[in-house]
């Protein structure tokens, strides 16, 4: 019995310790962020390209199909009530408020997050981070902060692109395939979707962007510096980001209703 308590106690303290370190790490990134944005914007832009532009294909293809599915589902369910005109609205709500930010964040973790984690982990394993320290360059500032900021900037943009392409997919299905009237398809969206809905989506994508980038960078920086350690850290990035995104999604949605 005492052994059990001891184990639980150890697990809890270990968790708290990691969590505390994680928060401190976040603060360190934030502390260097403004300076990096001003003085080394080129590095940040480079990372927006790495995380953002290189994720475009997967984001757009996924967006197109998710929008298409929303169109299919929306049409087939709404047509039971003769409300096909609302197909676009159903897709728009789904994309802008939920699926855009959430699926983008999950894809982002898989595409860009893993790349960040393994890149930083390998830099650590091959002494590149130590070498920077020896050259009196702070690796947190020079390596981690631009990557973190790149992810934070790229994520909302990707989510917006996802939603836009998704709407195009819904349009293809609803209007071109099932013959919903173009005018009413888009007019209903204009009339129903409000700025607050879009804001909710933007807010979510920013939160998810911070979470996904932070986790990816943290896991890379704290990876055990071996091939196996980096591999495991990469896996953890995907798993932890997925869970964090879904939990945050629930909390934000609950708070906004």
């Amino acid at each position: 019995m005492t052994a059990l308590f001891r184990e639980i106690y150890n697990a809890v303290t270990e968790f708290l310790r990691t969590f505390g370190a994680f928060q401190l790490f976040f603060l360190r990134l934030l502390r260097h962020s403004p300076g990096m944005l001003v003085s080394r914007f080129d590095l940040v832009v480079m990372q927006v390209f790495n995380s953002g532009a290189l994720s475009l294909v997967i984001i757009m293809v996924s967006g197109l199909f998710v929008g298409g599915v929303l169109g299919l589902q929306g049409y087939s369910n709404l047509s039971r009530f003769n409300a096909e005109d609302w197909t676009g609205v159903a897709a728009a709500f789904g994309l802008v408020k939920e699926l855009g930010p959430v699926i983008t964040a999950l894809l982002f973790a898989g595409r860009a997050g893993t790349a960040l984690t393994s890149e930083i982990g390998l830099m650590k394993a091959t002494d590149q981070l130590s070498a920077m320290e020896m050259m009196a360059v702070n690796p947190v500032r020079r390596v981690l902060v631009p990557r973190f900021l790149g992810g934070v900037i790229a994520m909302p943009l990707l989510a917006a692109i996802f939603s836009a392409v998704g709407m195009f997919g819904a349009h293809l299905v609803g209007v071109e395939m099932f013959g919903v009237d173009v005018g009413s398809f888009w007019q209903q969206i204009q009339l129903t979707v409000e700025l607050d809905d879009v804001k909710e989506g933007i807010f979510k994508s920013i939160v998810f962007g911070v979470a996904a980038s932070l986790i990816a960078v943290w896991e890379g920086y704290n990876a055990i510096p071996t091939a196996e350690g980096v591999g495991r850290a990469t896996t953890r990035t995907v798993v932890i980001t997925a869970i964090a995104v879904l939990v945050f999604d629930f909390m934000i949605t609950a708070a906004m209703i």
Partner: peptide, 14 residues
């Protein structure tokens, strides 16, 4: 550290 130059065992190039 700016006064040090260090050659790492495995090079550690970026």
């Amino acid at each position: 550290r700016q006064r040090f130059g260090m050659l790492f065992q495995n090079g550690a190039l970026l």
